[in-house]
């Protein structure tokens, strides 16, 4: 669905590249997470893939369209949800969606159903200018679903939302994933990426450090640990034991045979820990 080869981009039209020769491919139906801290090149890459930024150097194919000669009708297949909500404040929620609906040449979803999906149906006829930040964000999000896109670009879809609404958004993305929609997810929220993505790419300083599935990354870079809460001399103690280190395994066996165990569970490395391990940088 997306093929990127040796993509470079400079905002100053010189050698100061914001994106430095990155390459990747995304298959149809895949949810691909593009992870990195602010200024890593995520938005630049998404900008090029969505045609908001010009393709300067490299080859990019999106939904079957060569981005060197992109055509407007490609946007009938694509949906883009922006990080910053961008709606017409003087129009109501339903008027916003109905305006964009008229711009598509393909079958579109009933705007009221989309508003129901994110709980905005009760304020459908209120001006978007009176909405809270979260409501505007939800309106921006569902607008990107109007044309039932085959390829869906989501830029920080849950940033700034309260946990309940963020969960609602995640469930919608999961539903679209189940329906076969390809998703390009740009985020610095590793938990969401872990939950939603088939594969993730770690990008930092305009360069992709690695691409793999969250599971493979955890297996490759995460240390397998067992965390045990047990009682020693009437005192509650928590210990971590490596499942690879023989000394740790012996200690764990001793506790299992002789100790008073209250809780015991395995602990995987998080994507965030792996990101820091791979890139040497945090995500904020």
């Amino acid at each position: 669905m997306i093929t990127v080869k040796n993509l470079y981009h400079s905002y100053t039209n010189d050698q100061a590249y914001a994106v430095k020769g990155i390459s990747f491919e995304i298959s149809k139906g895949e949810v691909f997470g593009f992870l990195g801290p602010s200024g890593a090149g995520k938005s630049t890459t998404q900008g090029i893939l969505t045609g908001l930024l010009p393709l300067q150097k490299g080859d990019v194919e999106v939904a079957g369209y060569d981005m060197h000669h992109r055509k407007r009708d490609m946007f009938n297949k694509i949906g883009v949800s922006f990080e910053q909500s961008n709606v017409y404040n003087k129009l109501s929620a339903i008027e916003n969606l109905e305006f964009y609906k008229k711009l598509f040449d393909v079958n579109t979803v009933d705007p009221m159903k989309l508003l129901e999906l994110v709980g905005l149906d009760k304020v459908a006829h209120k001006k978007a200018g009176t909405f809270s930040k979260g409501m505007k964000h939800r309106l921006t999000f569902v607008r990107s679903m109007l044309n039932n896109p085959e390829l869906w670009f989501l830029d920080e879809p849950t940033t700034g939302l309260d946990p309940a609404i963020a969960r609602q958004i995640i469930e919608i993305v999961k539903q679209k994933k189940a329906e076969g929609t390809t998703v390009f997810l740009t985020t610095h929220n590793m938990n969401i990426a872990d939950e939603l993505c088939d594969r993730v790419a770690f990008i930092i300083d305009g360069d992709i450090k690695l691409i793999d599935s969250p599971r493979n990354l955890k297996l490759q870079f995460g240390e397998k640990l067992v965390v045990v809460d047990h009682i020693v001399n009437d005192q509650k103690i928590q210990d971590k034991f490596s499942l690879i280190n023989k000394e740790d395994l012996d200690k764990l066996n001793t506790i299992i045979q002789t100790g008073r165990i209250e809780m015991m569970h395995t602990k995987e490395a998080t994507l965030e820990e792996i990101f820091i391990k791979v890139t040497g940088r945090g995500l904020e």
Binding site: T50, F82, N86, N89, K90
Partner: peptide, 18 residues
């Protein structure tokens, strides 16, 4: 200016209107 203020030009630029 309304389009610029609300950044809706970006949304227009990713829609199939020439």
């Amino acid at each position: 200016v309304e389009e610029k203020m609300s950044n809706t030009l970006s949304a227009i630029n990713v829609s199939p209107i020439s």
